[in-house]
Amino acid sequence: MTLFGLEITLDLILYTGAFGLIVIGAAGIVLAHHLFRVILALAIAEAGANLLLVLSGYRWDAIAPILSGSESAAPMVDPVPQAMVLTAIVIGVGVQALAVGLAMQVKKTYGTLDMSAIRQRLEADIAGTAGIATTGSQDAPLGERPLPPADAVPVTPGSSAR
């Protein structure tokens, strides 16, 4: 099958899929405003990398790498990338679970999951801790160190003072 003069083959589809997922993930990480979407974009990019990894061991003429009875002489696909992908997927699960846990904590601390709002409040927070006046930090008390107890009341974005 050809499309726009380009022959569509299985490997073209697969590589486009893998690289496309990585690019979609990269774009999502930088463009998404909602923290949870950023975490999802990270998961998408990871899926692309895993697909690329498992493609690196494929052979046209081969079967799954499991020995069964007599036909063990048949060529098999490379088992090493499959083992690596298994590892990479589990690593991805661990990182994503931790990301979701952190996101819940962020929601508790800042009352929002909007990336730019978090970034602004973070800047103000650091500057406030250090006792420096910065432009655009109306809600950070100056002077002393505003370290509330860990179980402080969550600050909603609407409130202007703690």
């Binding site: 690329l52 990301a99 904590q105 508790k108 978090i118 970034r119």
Partner: peptide, 22 residues
């Protein structure tokens, strides 16, 4: 108060891991 820096660190680092894996 490091949950927000930690998650921003995690996302950057996670994307770095994707690049390294590629």
């Amino acid at each position: 108060r490091s949950s927000a820096p930690a998650i921003r660190y995690l996302i950057l680092s996670g994307f770095g891991s994707v690049l390294a894996l590629v």
